[in-house]
Amino acid sequence: MLDALRQPLESGEVVIARSAGSLRLPASFLLCLAANPCPCGRYSRRGEGCECTPAMVSRYQGRLSGPLLDRVDLRVQVDPVTRAELLERDSPAESTAVVAARVRAARERAATRLAGTPWRTNAQVPGRELRSRWRPEEGALAEAEREMERGLLTARGLDRVLRVAWTVADLAGRAEPGRLELRTALTLRRGFPTGTALLGPAPGARS
């Protein structure tokens, strides 16, 4: 059932085929997947409490196929909350209004760049256009190219990394993604622990 989502994720539509004909329906959606790290659910980087063998963990995580995961752009490892974090009164998190304003500005920046095209957001831009018309900063793709040579990144994965890198650049107010933005997009694709600093210098600063 999960793998049935692969084609709609790729094309943004669902095709229902029957003997009398076929029906094509729009299906542009945001997919959010969540899973425990192992069967018992207690596996963590601290190595405490988990009773699962490496084979059990591998078999459990293998239930999400490679082709499906290849279509997941952002992967975040969420660590268990500590007692101090749970009882903390003053949260350092930004307010929804602050984040919404930053997202709104980024979307407007992307819409301005894509004016005159059939697309409005980075997610809609075909990979061939990202690789030719809107190329990142010179040399920014070096790390991604090495991962492709090692078989760690597919052609589809590269296109998705480029889209995320453009979004990171738009959020930071950059005219184009550079090495920092590509590294951030790659790190988000690999998966990283919560609390890891990704974006580096303040918006406008150079890496």
Results as ranks from 00 to 15, higher is better:
residue 9 L to T: 08
residue 9 L to R: 11
residue 10 E to C: 03
residue 11 S to I: 02
residue 11 S to K: 15
residue 11 S to C: 08
residue 13 E to Q: 14
residue 13 E to G: 11
residue 16 I to C: 08
residue 16 I to G: 09
residue 16 I to A: 15
residue 17 A to M: 12
residue 19 S to A: 14
residue 19 S to Q: 13
residue 19 S to T: 09
residue 22 S to V: 09
residue 23 L to K: 10
residue 23 L to M: 13
residue 24 R to K: 09
residue 25 L to Y: 08
residue 26 P to T: 01
residue 26 P to Y: 03
residue 27 A to D: 09
residue 30 L to E: 08
residue 31 L to V: 14
residue 32 C to I: 13
residue 33 L to A: 06
residue 34 A to Q: 02
residue 36 N to G: 08
residue 37 P to G: 03
residue 40 C to A: 07
residue 43 Y to E: 04
residue 43 Y to S: 08
residue 43 Y to I: 05
residue 44 S to Q: 01
residue 46 R to N: 00
residue 47 G to V: 08
residue 48 E to V: 15
residue 51 E to I: 03
residue 51 E to A: 14
residue 51 E to P: 02
residue 52 C to D: 04
residue 53 T to D: 00
residue 53 T to H: 03
residue 54 P to E: 00
residue 55 A to S: 10
residue 57 V to H: 01
residue 57 V to N: 01
residue 57 V to A: 06
residue 59 R to Q: 10
residue 59 R to F: 14
residue 60 Y to G: 08
residue 62 G to Y: 09
residue 62 G to H: 12
residue 63 R to Q: 06
residue 63 R to I: 06
residue 65 S to K: 12
residue 65 S to G: 04
residue 65 S to M: 10
residue 67 P to A: 12
residue 68 L to E: 04
residue 68 L to T: 02
residue 69 L to M: 15
residue 71 R to D: 11
residue 72 V to I: 15
residue 72 V to S: 04
residue 77 Q to S: 11
residue 78 V to C: 01
residue 80 P to A: 13
residue 80 P to Y: 13
residue 81 V to D: 12
residue 81 V to I: 12
residue 82 T to G: 12
residue 82 T to Q: 12
residue 83 R to F: 09
residue 85 E to V: 01
residue 85 E to P: 01
residue 89 R to N: 06
residue 90 D to E: 13
residue 91 S to R: 01
residue 92 P to R: 02
residue 92 P to H: 08
residue 92 P to Y: 06
residue 93 A to R: 03
residue 94 E to S: 15
residue 94 E to I: 11
residue 95 S to V: 11
residue 96 T to C: 14
residue 96 T to P: 09
residue 99 V to C: 10
residue 101 A to S: 14
residue 101 A to K: 13
residue 101 A to D: 08
residue 102 R to C: 12
residue 104 R to D: 06
residue 104 R to I: 07
residue 106 A to G: 05
residue 106 A to F: 07
residue 107 R to L: 11
residue 107 R to F: 09
residue 108 E to L: 10
residue 110 A to Q: 11
residue 112 T to D: 07
residue 113 R to H: 06
residue 114 L to Q: 04
residue 114 L to I: 03
residue 114 L to Y: 04
residue 115 A to E: 15
residue 116 G to K: 00
residue 118 P to A: 08
residue 118 P to Y: 07
residue 119 W to T: 06
residue 119 W to V: 02
residue 119 W to Q: 07
residue 119 W to N: 04
residue 120 R to N: 13
residue 122 N to K: 02
residue 123 A to W: 10
residue 126 P to H: 07
residue 126 P to C: 05
residue 127 G to W: 02
residue 128 R to K: 10
residue 128 R to P: 02
residue 129 E to V: 15
residue 129 E to H: 14
residue 130 L to S: 00
residue 132 S to I: 06
residue 132 S to K: 07
residue 133 R to G: 00
residue 134 W to I: 02
residue 137 E to K: 05
residue 137 E to L: 08
